[in-house]
């Protein structure tokens, strides 16, 4: 099956104008300008298959939004190709636009001053959605997103969570096979987040909609996306499943050990454990961090139990956040570039 999105060697460069400081600097800028070329997206390639849900993550300024903007046809790539839904997004923009749905969490797509339902009606006409399709879809949207209560409120009076639900519904009104969401859960409370996630799951499940979303909230990924891509400095660092990510990057594990008393704790402190990093948490407990290629949890536990009297041991699961944070910090992708 061919990809619904095919991206090859995608590059985007911006020519940034460097402003000089102060009033004199501003004057100087009038006459001669200094430009600097910034490569926001640097030779990215990937493919998304129909029905996939893919998370696209990376620190601020990594190039996520720029990628999304090229994928949605807003920006023209400086190099490389995109083929999505059979179109080159920026070349056949209007045709392509009717086959995708887009949500920008930071900015609403709805008309600010009029009631939500009026925006929906206008979108219905823009996207040529029949009255009966519109009704069925609105009913389904309402079941999960609970839009009914504020359908007649102007967008500017909605809370962020309410607005986002409307924005997501608006993007899916024409039932596009391909949907891009740029930080759809940003700034939302837990309930609103849950609504949005539930909705996306439902759409993906029932309509087979392909979804690409960016987020800073990794629980979005854990709940929604079997596959994630990590980008930083414009380059794709990782493309694979969550499990694979952990397997590749989860280098060491940790045990939290509670001991019987202070003396026992000191005894553990004195124990020779090659390669294990010991961190004293308080009088009677330690955290032991060990590299997984050298130790197994069982091996460490055996040594500890033999050496000191232990009351409790907890194996600390390394969170996906921890893994990703360390990738962002540049600690762990030297040899594991996929």
């Amino acid at each position: 099956m061919p990809g619904i999105v095919e991206v090859e060697d995608l590059v985007k460069e911006f020519r940034a104008f460097e402003r000089r400081e102060g009033l004199l600097g501003a004057l100087a800028d009038l006459f001669s300008r200094q430009y600097r070329t910034v490569r926001a997206v640097d030779r990215i390639s990937f493919e998304i298959r129909p029905g996939e849900m893919v998370g696209y993550i990376g620190p601020n300024g990594a190039g996520k939004s720029t990628t999304i903007k090229m994928l949605t046809g807003i920006l023209v790539a400086s190099g490389g190709t995109i083929r999505a839904n059979g179109y080159i997004p920026w070349k056949e923009r209007t045709k392509y636009a009717s086959t995708i749905g887009v949500v920008f969490g930071q900015r609403t797509q709805l008309w600010w001053d009029i009631a939500v339902v009026e925006s929906f009606q206008l979108l219905r006409k823009i996207y040529n959605v029949s009255e009966s399709d519109y009704k069925t879809r609105m009913k389904r949207f309402d079941e999960i997103l609970e839009l009914g209560r504020y359908l007649h409120t102007p967008v500017r009076k909605l809370s962020l969570g309410e607005r986002m639900r409307c924005d997501v519904a608006a993007a899916l009104l024409h039932s596009p096979p391909l949907v891009f969401l740029d930080e759809p859960t940003i700034g939302l409370d837990i309930v609103a987040k849950e609504h949005i996630r539930q909705f996306l799951k439902d759409v993906n499940h029932h309509s087979g909609t392909t979804i690409l979303l960016t987020t800073h909230d990794l629980s979005d990924i854990e709940e929604l996306c079997p596959r994630l891509m990590i980008i930083d400095h414009g380059r794709l660092l990782f493309d694979g499943g969550l499990k694979e990510l952990k397997r590749l990057f989860w280098r060491d594990s940790a045990l939290k050990v509670d001991l019987k008393d202070r003396e026992e704790a000191d005894r553990l402190g004195a124990l020779e454990l090659d390669g294990v990093e010991k961190q004293r948490l308080d009088d009677m407990s330690y955290r032991l961090r060990f590299p997984r290629d050298q130790w197994t949890a069982a091996g460490v536990i055996r040594r500890v139990v033999n050496a000191a009297e232990v009351r409790d041991i907890v194996i600390e699961e390394q969170s996906i956040e921890e893994v990703v944070k360390r990738i962002y910090l540049g600690e762990m992708f030297q040899e594991s570039r996929p």
Partner: peptide
């Protein structure tokens, strides 16, 4: 303000 993004996302001549 970047509102042109929204214009480009709609299947109507910009």
């Amino acid at each position: 303000e970047g509102k042109f993004d929204r214009v480009l996302l709609r299947p109507v001549n910009s």
